[in-house]
Design a protein around this nucleic acid. Sequence first.
DNA 1: TTTTGAGTTGTTCGA
DNA 2: GTCGAACAACTCAAA
Length: 485
Amino acid sequence: MADRSDAPCIVWFRDDLRLSDHSALHAAAATGRPVICLYVLDETSRRTGARPIGGAARWWLAQSLRALEKRMGDAGVPLVLRNGNAAAIIPELARASGARDVFWNRIAQAPHQAAEDDIATALRERGVHGQTFAGDLLATPDSVRTKEGRGLRVFTPFWRRIQALGAPPDPLPSPRRLRAGPDVASDTIESLCLEPTRPDWAGGLRETWTPGESAAQKRLKDFLNAHLAGYAHDRDRPDRDGTSGLSPHLRFGEISPRQIWHATHFAAAERPALAADADKFLSELGWRDFCRHLLFDVPDLATRNLQPSFDGFSWRHDDEALKAWQRGQTGYPIVDAGMRQLWHTGVMHNRVRMVVASFLVKHLLIDWRAGEQWFWDTLVDADAGNNPANWQWVAGCGADAAPYFRVFNPVLQGEKFDPDGAYVSRWVGELAQLPKKLIHQPWEATPLELASAGVTLGKTYPHPIIDHRKGRERALKAYEKVRGG
DNA sequence: TTTTGAGTTGTTCGA
DNA sequence: GTCGAACAACTCAAA
């Protein structure tokens, strides 16, 4: 066993699967002592309320761990994997390895915080020092409060407050040198059973994504070079490559918000004409913080209406309609394109997320939680804050909610944001031959037009499962009851 | 304490 | 085709 002055440090990795700008790793490396890098897949902690991650995110996690393992291997340090209860594993590993210190980056979510507190206590009882760092957000929830001490519920004042805090700390470099600790047994990534086997539905994910820190950095760089110009407009166009695509990387902390913040400011300083685009992009990072702060204040955000007046809302129970939505068989091309993109790639364009969510909640009158859960299971970027907060926003029961009368028209949205039908053609191939004037509303086509495009409604592509006008009117009627709390 | 101004993302209708 | 108004009332944040 190492003597006390050279005792190893444990760095506990969680939603921060990177080496750069990693406060805990940086601090551990700075001690000059050996470092044990640990990741614990903890699916035992439901008692704390931590939400088990969904299927697509599990796939991403496996790839991200592989990438991290590789990077660490290059730095001469193994990644130690364990499957089980972190509150038991970490103190035990400290004992077995003779570690005197455990470093980790906090996760500003109540259930994680509770687990961290348990672990810190268990360590203290064994004479092990726990050192923690903030950094999964631009600002900690306690740094943005109203005078009454509450979290802000409106984005604009929230974002102004964040901006008033000034620049977040400069990102830290990757540690220059890491000393490997004593040999410690590790599980394998395969043994964590994170990836699908039979059937292997991850083909589309593999085609679409390269998880890991290096890929995240490259994506940020490419985005700033090629797509920041025009971002404010192009971000709304699912038929263009106008978004950063950083969300899953952010979800697993392969890149940090402050790295993105500083890189974007640097890019905008070099090219002042991009100031407005940069502001828009950074405000999206602000939305991530906003949703996480909200989650911090409301741990059951994914299950409870933020506005209690919605508690008595009579959602429709319609499994058939829910299935049609999930499978991209609603008969509305933009909705179906989005749902199929999600199933294939693990993401959906932001604009289309709003359209499909509005369709489920308003046209079909299905409980937003059913949609939120589906997204949670199928999105590689499923975020504990963003996902429920935005579903509640669309449903009208959230913070700073969309007005109840805002019902997206799937035909207009398609025509406006996918004017050539390129997005629909890509994901709903059976409609690709339709002229672009009809591709967002195939039911308006003449029999000849349908025939020459090879479309048979009700056979090769479904009839709309609900008429837009009727659905809209039904939704407005149902929402009338909730109005006024 | 009270007041005031404002609030991500839309649609429809009628002029 | 384009434009402005109506769609409502509530809650939030800050003065």
